[in-house]
Amino acid sequence: MTGHGQFHWNELMTKDIAASKAFYGEVLGWTFEDMPMGDGTVYTVAMAGGQPAAGLFDMASMTEAGPEGWFAYIAVDDLDAALAAARERGAIVYREPFDVPDVGRIAILADPRGAAQGWMTPARR
């Protein structure tokens, strides 16, 4: 389990899932498992040596998609308390906390200088 303040998960935000799968599959040897999200969205988990390595998110489903790139999630012990402290210090919360079953509680924010990131309290396994 990842500890408080450590990077927990990385996600590629891409506009072309097929091209991204081809690139990372060929170059890094990743395999992929698609996970339907229930609303027509499919989330892809990249596997390295049979273990989850990263996620791929299809930006085509986003109404306001920015540039493609990697997005990091940092583990926190208590998401609500961490967000309160971050807000007091100038952070902007873009997406309020939401729960993903078997994954954890997640929020999207930017630090006072504008660096976007996700914070999450991982689900107990």
Rank of each mutant, 00 (worst) to 15 (best):
G3M: 07
G29P: 01
Y24R: 02
K15E: 00
D34G: 10
F32R: 02
A22T: 05
M47Q: 14
T14Y: 12
F32C: 06
V27Q: 02
Y43C: 10
M13F: 12
Y24F: 07
G38H: 15
T2I: 15
T44K: 02
E11R: 10
K15L: 03
V42K: 04
G3N: 04
D34S: 12
M1H: 12
K15M: 04
E33G: 02
E26C: 00
M35D: 05
Q6M: 14
D34C: 07
K21Y: 09
F32Q: 05
E11N: 11
L12R: 15
Y43R: 07
M35C: 06
G29R: 06
G5Q: 08
T41S: 09
V27H: 04
K15P: 00
V45D: 00
A46M: 10
T44G: 02
V42S: 04
F23E: 13
A22I: 03
Y24G: 05
D16E: 01
G25M: 09
K15I: 02
W9T: 06
A19S: 08
G29M: 05
M37Y: 00
G25C: 07
D39I: 04
M35N: 08
T44S: 08
E33D: 14
M37V: 01
V45E: 01
K21D: 08
M13T: 10
A19W: 10
F32W: 03
G5P: 00
